[in-house]
């Protein structure tokens, strides 16, 4: 009987809320819908230096959408994201990606890296010139001069926690847990780096202040546009 009464009440309140959305006190917004994301990917004022979770605000929408699909479809492995996204549609994930891309940055204050001047010099060389001998492109060639990413699918590298950066390099180098798109450029690049270089990179990057926007797609050289074409095209995957 109680159960019936409850269903009755629930139905009445359902009708009431349908007629008058504000009566539930809930706004029909995407902000309300992405609460499950915000618990980890915090707002700017609640960001936690020691947290593992990367900033997603202000990253290119195409990049965010690709990652959401990769998590859902098993090409990028992270259990909490895989479970959360299992029953999401492409349309809804694209909307969520665009929402976060348009959000103001929630970034960490820079941390001065504990690196020797030599280490800093070698990181800066990799960052802005690459190493032609090992066929390593400069990081800035893909991720933008300001390392803030390139529209629509290449992420910025600044304002990310050290632990997150280190984990991604670990994933790319060891394979298996990180199955990116094809060609999987970051896996190839990460495998050519030494462990010392990786350690220095992931300390150096959080030392830079977040500034500027991600740049337009025309900033890519034709060679790189060709190399990353499947990622840039954002090919839809059938489900």
């Amino acid at each position: 009987m109680k159960f019936f009464a409850f269903i009755f009440l629930a139905m009445i309140s359902g009708l009431a809320s349908a007629a008058e959305p504000s009566s539930s006190g809930l706004s029909d917004t995407l902000e309300e819908r992405v609460k499950p994301c915000i618990i980890c990917h915090r707002d700017a004022d609640r960001i936690d230096r020691d947290a593992y979770f990367p900033r997603i605000a202000g990253k290119p929408a195409g990049y965010l959408f690709n990652q959401l699909r990769n998590f859902r479809d098993g090409r990028r492995y992270y259990q909490p994201m895989a479970i959360l996204l299992e029953n999401m549609s492409d349309e809804y994930m694209r909307e969520i990606a665009e929402y976060f891309a348009a959000q103001p940055y929630a970034y960490l204050e820079p941390v001065v890296p504990a690196l020797t001047p030599d280490e800093i010099k070698s990181v800066e060389t990799l960052m802005y010139s690459g190493d032609p001998e090992r066929d390593l492109p400069a990081c800035s060639a893909c991720h933008g001069e300001k390392l803030m990413g390139v529209q629509p699918t290449i992420p910025g590298l600044l304002g990310l926690p050290h632990a997150y950066l280190a984990a991604q390099f670990g994933g790319w180098r060891n394979g298996g847990i990180m199955r990116g798109q094809i060609p999987d450029c970051m896996s190839e690049i990460a495998k050519k780096l030494t462990q010392e270089e990786v350690n220095a990179l992931v300390q150096w990057l959080p030392g830079l202040p977040v500034s500027g926007q991600s740049t337009g797609a025309d900033a890519l050289t034709p060679e790189l546009a060709q190399r990353c074409r499947t990622i840039l095209s954002g090919k839809e995957v059938t489900r």
């Binding site: 995407l30 309300e32 819908r33 609460k35 499950p36 980890c40 809804y92 909307e95």
Partner: peptide, 9 residues
């Protein structure tokens, strides 16, 4: 089509 969700705790 656009469900609300539960955060992972």
């Amino acid at each position: 089509p656009r469900p609300h969700g539960m955060p992972p705790y």
